[in-house]
Design a binder for these strands. Structure first.
Lengths: 156, 156
DNA sequence: GGCTAATCTCTCGAAGATCGAGACTATCGT
DNA sequence: ACGATAGTCTCGATCTTCGAGAGATTAGCC
């Protein structure tokens, strides 16, 4: 293996390393709020949907965090009991239950992840437009590749 | 918010998106091998340690995946029962138990994650040295930031 | 319009995962 | 040597996830 390939392999490792560290941030949030990993993933999914202007349904949440409906019910029970979320019956389709984040959960999320995002944006302020374009290209291509593997990997 | 900041904020979102997709790859691996999330994280930690030439101990594994010793025992029991790992009493310190990955688990990991890594390296082959340097800088800085937050975030 | 099938969430009991407390063995420091 | 410390394991309790199936609502068809 030549040096060029080694350098590129190193980049792949760095990406995984970053992934691990990101995980630690979530873990920290979980610890601080008495949540487990699943609950944090759920809150993030709900918050992401809210950012996109959608209200996630119980089923949608299950798809996002990969849990069966029985587990989603239990999960939402926990989140509701903790005051992070409340159930809202969808008036369009009264079978569905949508999840609305509470003010406090929204604030806690912003407090914890907002600072991280802000620091990232600040750091990126030191990049020229050309450099930023490289980063965007990198993230776009990596996401495409990962997505392809997430869908078609198991030839089993 | 001006366009420049918007673009940089977008990058932060893309990074999180990539994180989610990476998670899906692990989930896929878990599904294909009848493992849960924790087990996959554990196998990855053991494999990473092996790549660095270290043999992870039970305690080290617990630190890596954030589990108490009782849970680590149960976790290693599961992995050992599944033939993914075997316990090896450390001859240097006979209190310790180190984890050795089985051939089959090693192969399965390479099969699943190796392809992903290969595709990434291939894609990075299209980057000039200058572009690669930008990517490395980006990953390095982001990791630093995330790491800082993972350690000091909760001012609670 | 009414009937059947499909969709969405929930309940229940069983199986799996995590934990705290404490036991047991091996090592370290004096 | 000997007490203290570190590393792993056992046990029982608690929390999480799941499959199966019930109940309620909507969609499709005649």
């Amino acid at each position: 293996m030549d040096d060029a390939t080694a350098a590129r392999r190193e980049v792949a490792l760095m990406l995984r390393r970053l992934d691990v560290e990101l995980d630690a941030v979530s873990q920290r949030f979980a610890l601080a709020h008495g949540l487990n990993r699943t609950d944090v993933r759920a809150l993030v999914a709900i918050m992401d949907a809210a950012r996109r202007g959608e209200a996630l349904s119980a089923g949608g949440l299950g798809a996002a965090v990969e849990l069966r409906s029985a587990s989603v019910t239990a999960l939402v029970d926990r989140l509701e009991r903790g005051g992070h979320v409340r159930r809202v019956r969808d008036p369009e389709d009264r079978r569905r239950v949508t999840l609305a984040m509470s003010e406090s959960a929204m604030a806690a999320g912003a407090e914890h992840f907002g600072g991280l995002s802000r620091d990232m944006v600040d750091a990126l302020g030191g990049y020229t437009d050309e450099e930023l374009a490289v980063v965007v290209r990198f993230l776009t291509e990596m996401t495409e590749i990962v997505q392809r593997h997430a869908r078609t990997d198991p030839p089993d």
